[in-house]
Computed example of a mutant assay.
Amino acid sequence: MSFEKTSGWLDWYAGPSRPKFTLPAGSVDAHCHVFGPGDEFPFAPERKYTPCDASKAQLFALRDHLGFARNVIVQATCHGADNRAMADACRSSNGRARGVATVRRSVTDRELEALHADGVRGVRFNFVKRLVDFTPKDELLEIAARVGQLGWHVVVYFEAVDLPELWDFFTALPTTVVVDHMGRPSVDQPLDGAEFQLFLKFMREHGNVWSKVSCPERLSLAGPPALNGEQSAYRDVVPFARAVVEAFPDRVLWGTDWPHPNLKNHMPDDGLLVDFIPHIATTADLQRKLLVDNPMRLYWPEEFWQ
C-alpha cells in the first residue's frame, strides 16, 4: 500500500555522528518508534499525519551505531491501536526490545496476553490534542486496571499547561505512571516558575510517577549547535532535565525519540542527542541509573532482580 507523506514532513537524519559520550554498558534507548514500513504495516485511517517509513532494521542499526544495548519501542500515533509494527519489532529483537502499546477498551484478554508475549510492558495515553482525539477517562481507567494485572505501567503524554486539569486523573491510575518528555515544559519560563514547579511537586508527592528526560530537540528554543553555533546542544533544556534527574534519580528514563515525529524546524543528529546526556546526568552513578538500572527495572525486571 502506498502512502504520501504529510506535506513538510522531515525525514530522520540518515548520517548520525558517533557520540563522543561513551554510554554505560547495557544502556537502553527507552523512547523510540517504528513507522511502518507502510506497505507492510499500513498507517491508521484515523491518523493525523503520515510519516516517512522508519523500519525496525533501521532502528536496530541506529541502536548499534550509538552504542545502546536495548530499545523501548513506543507505539506511534500514526498507527493508532494497530500495534503490529511495534510488536513485530519487539519480536525481531531477540529480547533486546520491549514495547509500549496503544489499546482500546475493546481489546480482549487474549490480545493483551499476546502483546505481553511479544514484549509489551506498558500502554500509552496521549493527551496532546493536536495528535489524537479525546478518549473518555473512564475508558482509560478501565484499561489501566486491566493492564495493571499484567504488571504493565501507563505512559502519559501531555503538555505542561494541561497538568492541572489532568492531575486528579493521573493520580487515580493504579499503576506506575511514566511521563513523556517531562510533561513538555516551556523552557522560556523560569526553572522556579509555577509551571515547572508544579511538575516537580507532582513527582515529589506521587512516588509511582516517573519521567523521561528526553526530547530536548522538541523543547528547545535555542536549538542545536548547527543552528546557533553553541558548543552545548539544546542548552536551554539542560537545567530542567538536570533538575528532574537530580531530584528523582531512581525514576528517570532517557530515549532518542527516533525517528522524531512531527518536528518542524530541524531534524536532530542522534549522536548529538547522546552527547546531551552528560549535561543532564553529570556523574557516572546518575548516568547508570538513567540509562541502565531504571529502564531495566521497569522493562526487564526478571533480569534486573536475578
Rank of each mutant, 00 (worst) to 15 (best):
F3T: 09
K20T: 05
A25H: 13
A25I: 08
A25E: 15
G26Q: 05
H33A: 00
F35S: 11
F35W: 13
P37I: 07
T50D: 03
C52F: 12
A54G: 12
A57F: 07
L59I: 04
H65S: 15
L66I: 08
N71H: 10
A76N: 01
C78M: 11
R84F: 03
A89V: 00
R91C: 13
R91I: 02
R91V: 05
R96F: 13
G99E: 03
A101Y: 10
V103Y: 13
S106K: 13
S106E: 15
E111P: 08
V120W: 00
G122I: 08
F125P: 08
L131P: 00
F134N: 06
P136I: 06
A144L: 04
V147R: 01
G151E: 03
H153T: 08
A160K: 06
L163D: 11
F169G: 07
T171Q: 15
M182H: 03
M182A: 13
V187N: 05
E195V: 01
E205I: 10
N208V: 05
S220A: 08
S220H: 03
A222H: 09
D236K: 00
A243T: 12
H266A: 04
D275Q: 12
H279F: 12
A284W: 02
R288M: 05
V292P: 14
N294S: 09
M296T: 14
L298N: 12
P301F: 02
